[in-house]
């Protein structure tokens, strides 16, 4: 039970990071982006490439940072992957979503995002192969937190949680302390009023994709650290991160963070009562429960 709770918090840390970008895009561009989870895969795999590159160039970077299975090479790879993923998100918007936006209605964007998800996911599969990959071949030994009852935790998991919390704190400070943050929130609440107040809308949308992509990339790497990299990881992550945004309330960054942890914990706690085969359904059940009792989520506001 406590083990499940701990695992849930760790799952929640990468779900939250993924959900933040998704909720911003959904609120500002007003469409459910089903390709967002593919940004997590993209981030995870580009980190894999940069990791290999770094280790190849400077072999000393490939050493483990005991007790973590993490290497300096991977840590350095993360910011590169954030940039690559952020720019990819921006490019996908420029090349595809913006054109569809100009031609059709909001729902066409949802279709287009499904199409993009299929394309990105399977291109990753073609490039990296369909079999699972790991950042590190070494097995990270779990630390025993408590003997009675036996609770295990891997050092990598602690790193993931702490790093995710730091990123969220930075984002929180930006949103609550800087004019740039106010502008982002203003655009989320009322795009045309934001323009009236001097906010450059197209540029803000660019930043939203960059931030969403960068956070998704970190989430992808953390997912890879906690599990393994597979090209179809986006397919398995898309529903949980959507559930996180709905539980938190579409458009609310804090809601997305909380929603991510709720979904992560619920999915792991469900293992106590449900056979593990049913885990993929848990996010859906959460969505249904939220829609029944609080349709606009914990922090969401009704907006037409």
């Amino acid at each position: 039970m406590i083990q499940n709770l701990i695992d849930g918090v760790l799952t929640g840390s990468y779900l939250s990071l993924g959900a933040i970008g998704l909720t911003l895009v959904m609120h500002i561009l007003r469409f459910a982006n089903f390709s967002h989870a593919e940004l997590l895969s993209l981030g995870a795999y580009s980190a894999l490439v940069f990791d290999a590159l770094m280790s190849g160039l400077v072999p000393t970077l490939a050493e483990k940072l005991a007790p973590l299975s993490l290497t300096w090479a991977l840590i350095i790879a993360i910011p590169f992957s954030m940039i690559v993923t952020g720019i990819s998100a921006l490019l996908i918007d420029k090349l595809i979503f913006r054109r569809v936006r100009e031609k059709g209605q909001e729902l066409s964007m949802v279709f287009a995002s499904f199409g993009m998800a299929l394309i990105v996911r399977n291109i990753i599969g073609l490039i990296f192969g369909l079999s699972p990959q790991l950042y590190s071949k070494d097995i990270a030994f779990a630390m025993v937190l408590s003997l009675d009852p036996l609770i295990l935790i891997k050092p990598d998991q602690v790193f993931v949680l702490v790093a995710a919390l730091i990123l969220m704190l930075i984002l929180h400070l930006v949103l609550s302390r800087t004019t740039f943050g106010y502008a982002l929130r203003a655009v989320a609440e009322n795009p045309s009023l934001a323009q009236v107040n001097g906010v450059n809308l197209p540029r803000t949308i660019m930043y939203v994709w960059l931030i969403g992509g960068a956070l998704a990339s970190v989430a992808g790497v953390f997912y890879g650290l906690s599990h393994q990299l597979i090209p179809v990881m986006g397919r398995d992550l898309v529903l949980p991160i959507f559930a996180a945004t709905i539980v938190g309330g579409i458009g609310s960054v804090y809601g997305a963070v909380l929603g991510g942890f709720i979904v992560g914990i619920a999915a792991n706690l469900a293992l106590v009562v449900l056979p593990s085969g049913y885990t993929p359904s848990v996010p859906f059940l959460l969505i249904i429960i939220v829609l029944m009792i609080r349709p606009h989520g914990l922090f969401g506001e009704a907006r037409a």
């Binding site: 089903f34 996010p283 969505i287």
Partner: peptide, 14 residues
Amino acid sequence: HDYLAIATFGVAVA
């Protein structure tokens, strides 16, 4: 409208 999109997608997964 995105709630329907997400919920129906969820139905399929579940």
